[in-house]
Amino acid sequence: MTLIMLTLALLLIGLVASTSASIEYAEWHFQNPWFHSRRHFIYLVIGIGAAVASYCVKPQFWFSTGWWWLLGALALLILVLIPGVGRVVNGAQRWLPLGPFTLQPSEFAKLAVVVYLAGYMVRREHEVRNQWQGFLKPMAVLVATTLLLMLEPDFGATVIISATAFGMLFLAGVRVGHFMVVVLLALAALSVLIISEPYRVKRLTAYTDPWADPFGTGFQLVQSLIAFGRGEWFGVGLGNSVQKLFYLPEAHTDFVFSIWAEETGFIGAIAVIGLFVALIGRILWVGRRAFVNENPFGAYICYGVALIFSGQAFVNMGASSGLLPTKGLTLPFVSYGGTSLVVCCVMLGLVVRIDRDARLVPQRRRSV
């Protein structure tokens, strides 16, 4: 119940925040101020339905079909790169058009990688903990996934999936020496990827001093910081944001937290951060209890979901507040974005099912 209540609170905040942040944008581009809010509500209904469906499915099904989910995700990542199939927005080819809606394969890949790795680490526990090949096999899968993501390009999803995979393998008990060698190689590869694209270097340098070029590379961060400053303690009131009036690009997606902070102030921003901390802490607690109840697959699923939620929340809020370089990542359950919202709900449904099964274990033992 705690997981559900925390998630519902974030979903309601997301509906309010994305609606407020998108009204003027939707009015200007679609001549309908409620265009994005209606679509967000539809995504919300679909997401809740998907969460209920994932809750009703036994974890054993996910365990036995992990490979198929991974292959499906890789197929979608390849499909989106085919010219004429994937939709290009702002120079990135990340979306598959499905009639009036779009599908973002990178979001589906996050779920697929978590499910696959959780099953792999249970089946190959001895190899993962004691042998190089047990560690290198999932790394090969990770390399294939990240290469496809970088071809879109989607650097943010690459970082989140890589960090989640490394975190899950570390929690599974891989040898520290093996882990450190591969992590250092991965960091070196990420550094090369950053340096290879001038726009990434500009983003990295701009966040250190956005005011040096406030109308160029530092524009987004400067406008975001202005939103935080205007919010002060209690905000300017819901719907009264000035920065959403075409000052702050992507106000309803990547920078929805900035608009929320402007309209609800420091108190509102801290409330959202507190909800994420409580939700992620609860998911980790469920994972720990699943491990104690001899359900390592459920535990690894929980750890992977917690890593994805915490990573995306930290990067999104960190980028909007100037703590991290500007990066396009949605805030789970809050930002506008159908695929992200639905996948997050599916992940949460999985965790709730694992929590429910863990609660039944002591009852079964007492009945015996």
Rank of each mutant, 00 (worst) to 15 (best):
Q60V: 15
V183F: 09
Y300M: 11
V141M: 13
A313N: 10
L185W: 06
G216N: 05
K202R: 14
W68S: 11
W285K: 13
A306I: 14
S106D: 03
Y55A: 05
S258P: 09
D209E: 08
F30H: 14
E294Q: 13
G287I: 00
S367R: 12
I195H: 06
E197I: 01
L74I: 06
P332K: 07
P100Q: 08
A269D: 03
F30W: 12
A53Q: 07
F228S: 11
A92D: 09
L147A: 13
V128A: 03
G49F: 08
E27D: 12
A251V: 10
F314W: 11
G177F: 09
V181G: 00
G91I: 09
G265E: 04
I48E: 07
V277D: 00
F135V: 13
D209I: 06
D154K: 01
I283N: 01
T145W: 01
V361T: 10
G237H: 07
Q312I: 15
V192E: 04
P138I: 04
R39E: 12
T158Q: 02
L329Q: 05
I82L: 00
A261E: 04
T217L: 00
L225C: 07
K58W: 13
F219P: 06
L187V: 15
P97I: 15
R38I: 15
I259L: 11
L151N: 04
V89N: 06
G218D: 07
T145C: 12
T19C: 00
G281S: 09
G337Y: 06
N32K: 09
L136V: 12
V52Y: 09
P214H: 06
V201H: 01
T339P: 03
G239E: 11
G216H: 03
S335A: 10
F333G: 11
R123I: 15
S37Y: 02
V88M: 01
T264M: 14
R364A: 12
H126L: 11
N32G: 05
A17C: 06
Y199K: 08
R123S: 12
V292H: 15
I354H: 00
W28L: 13
Q223K: 12
Q104Y: 02
L147C: 13
T164D: 05
W211I: 15
L147S: 10
S335P: 08
F215P: 03
T330R: 08
R200S: 09
A290N: 01
F228T: 05
V114I: 15
A73P: 02
R356S: 15
L76W: 02
